[in-house]
Structures are given as C-alpha cells and as structure tokens.
Amino acid sequence: MIKPRKLQSGDTVALVSLSSGLAGEDEIRWRTEQGIERLENVFGLKVKVMPHALKGIDYIYNHPEKRAADLNSALKDKSVKAIICAIGGNETVRILPFIDTEALKNNPKIFTGYSDSTTNHLFFYKYGISTSYGPALLTDFAENIAMDDYTVEAVKKTWFSTEPIGEIQTSPFIREAGLRWDFENKNIERPKYNNPGYESINGTGKARGHLIGGCLEVLNNLRGTEYFPGLNDFKDALLFLETSECTLDPEIFEDYLRAMAVMGVFEHTNGIVIGRPFNGLYYAEYKEVLRTVLSEAGRIDLPVLYNASFGHNEPKFIVPYGLQAEIDTEKLTFKILESAVVN
C-alpha cells in the first residue's frame, strides 16, 4: 500500500463534505466551527474549508460533481496534507464517477472518515492508497466540552508519527449517543459508561493480515458494483466490520453477513475484528448471529475479536486500510504492526 506523509504542527488540512451536507446547515454551523477550532488548537493545524463543503444538505445532495471537485482540488493542492470528511451520509457513491483518478494516484494524502465514507476508502484502496477509517469533523473533533483523550492519542499516533502503531486497546469508556446537536446542548457532556473490553467470540489463537472492511451496511450496498472489493482483496486479510446508527435488526445483520459468506469472503480471511454495536444495541444478538453464519460457512476456526472501539463509537481509534495487523483471541489483543504514514 502507498502510505501518505505524516502530519506536523502548522500543516494544512482540507474539510470536505462528500456525503451529507449537514456541516453547512445554519443550526449546525456552531458545531462545524467547534470541530475546526479543535483541529487548530489541539493539533496545531490550519484548516482549509473546500468551496462547496458548507453549502448545505440540498446543494450537496444535488451536486455530487461539486463534492468530487472539492476532493479533486484538495488532492491537487500541494499545501493540503490531509483530507477530513465532515460526516457520513448515504450516497457518496454518486461522486465516484467524477473523481480525478490521476490526481488520487499521484497525491496520496491522509484521508479520514467512517460510515458512508467506506465507499471513498475502498475507492482509494482500489488504487493502492492507504486511508484511515477514523474520526469525522462533526462527531469526534467537535465532541461536546472537549475531544476525548483516547481519540486525540489515536490521531497523534496514527497521523503524526512514523513509528509502528502497535497495540490498540479498547477505549476505557463509551459515550452514549442520543444528545441532539442543538446549540443549547453545547456545554453538556455526553454520558459515558465503562467499556468491558475485547471479547473472543469465535475461533482461537492469533491471526495476521492486511486490514480491509468498513461499515457493514455500506459494504452491503456496494455488493454487485465495481466498487466492492474483489475476493483477492480479502485473501489473508483481517476484516474489520461495524454497524451504523441504523442499528440493524439481527435478522438483517444475519442476511448481510450470510451474503458475504456465500460470496466467499470469510473463506479467504484470516480473522475478523468487530466494532461495538452502536449504543450497545443487539450486543449479545450480533455475537450469536456471527457464530451461526461462520459455522454455516465452515469457519468455526476463524478468530473473531469483538467490541472494538472504532466506527460508530466515541471515543474511537483509527483503522488504516491495507496495513498489517494481528489479533490474539487468547490474550485479547489487537495490534497494528506498521506505521500509517511516512516521512
């Protein structure tokens, strides 16, 4: 995989809205500004807001070509060292025909986002560029009161250092979702509760492989398109999966996983890392579904580590695509064995 260059204080990062245009809505602008201030004050970065990023939900929806234009411009801009998605959504796939693939291939940069951004990540992956399944502006950087230390440390370790990332522990606590992004809630800290840590729910021992995956709902929506990874991409991989705030009914969760099993995805992978379900809903049910589907697929041996702190969880760590990683279902550890960036 081609790795982007590391960040350092004083660098410029670009803000893009490649999915939803929520960041440009009047009632949300306070939160957008708060996220930008955190990038500036916590990490010493300069923020370049791309021309169409804050034009609002309707404009962003109606102009996928303008969203792509922002991405293309950020890729070509030599002063921009990283690209940060404002938030997810549900139809960023519409921008892909407008992306300048030469600009993408010739200008590898840190790219971060999660949820619907899975589509963008897989598009980068198609061209051999490692990206970060990680924080978005409106969620993580704009967290009420202050950013969580766990997320701050993940950013510094992943984007500001060329040392191997190493062991990734789960976050010590979990933020409860549900507090609306109303201005009057700005200074209310979201409730948090203890995180019990990783669980081993299938197979035994260690597994190593390159990281590939994302949000399960988005992966399901890409099945049958040219943007879904080929089976060779899953060969000897560590597959990381998580679910969104839509909180899939366990039967639908089962259908999505079974489709991947029928396609041969689990036959090729060396192991799986599963993110904690959103707000912990269906926590026990999802475990049983995973065991059932893997048993059907003849993979009762496949190591699976459950309850990881990424995706639709705050605080979160960053999962860099294509990097070699290792899980240990006996020691309950997850390690990323190389750096995500270069000098």
Rank of each mutant, 00 (worst) to 15 (best):
I252V: 15
N307V: 01
F234W: 06
I36C: 00
K46S: 11
N106D: 09
C85F: 07
I60Q: 09
K316G: 01
N220L: 03
Y61C: 08
V80Q: 07
N72Y: 13
F141D: 00
E153V: 08
C246S: 15
N144E: 03
V218M: 05
T118S: 04
R258V: 03
G213V: 11
D100V: 00
G203R: 11
I165M: 09
V293Q: 07
K76R: 13
D182M: 04
A261G: 14
E37G: 08
L302K: 08
K66L: 05
G10T: 05
G214D: 07
S295N: 13
R258G: 02
L137Q: 04
D182T: 02
R5T: 13
M260Q: 13
G10M: 05
G113L: 02
L39K: 03
D249R: 13
K316A: 01
G230S: 15
L222Y: 11
Y125W: 00
L18V: 13
A284R: 13
F123R: 04
F183M: 02
R38G: 02
K126W: 00
A14F: 06
N307H: 10
T158P: 02
F334K: 09
T292H: 12
S171P: 05
D301I: 06
P250I: 12
N41P: 00
A86W: 03
A146R: 14
P277H: 09
G197T: 10
T225L: 08
N120I: 15
V13M: 07
E326C: 10
L332W: 01
T170V: 15
K331R: 09
E40A: 11
D70S: 08
K192I: 10
E245L: 10
L302I: 12
N270T: 04
A68T: 09
L22A: 12
I188P: 02
G24P: 10
G24I: 09
V93R: 07
Y59P: 04
E326N: 07
T131D: 04
E189Q: 15
K46L: 05
L15I: 14
N279E: 14
G89I: 03
A68E: 08
I84T: 06
Y59C: 05
M50E: 01
N107C: 08
D26S: 13
E102T: 14
R5N: 13
Y133S: 09
T247D: 14
N232A: 14
G280N: 12
S200I: 03
K78N: 11
E326V: 06
G214F: 06
S200Y: 05
F160I: 10
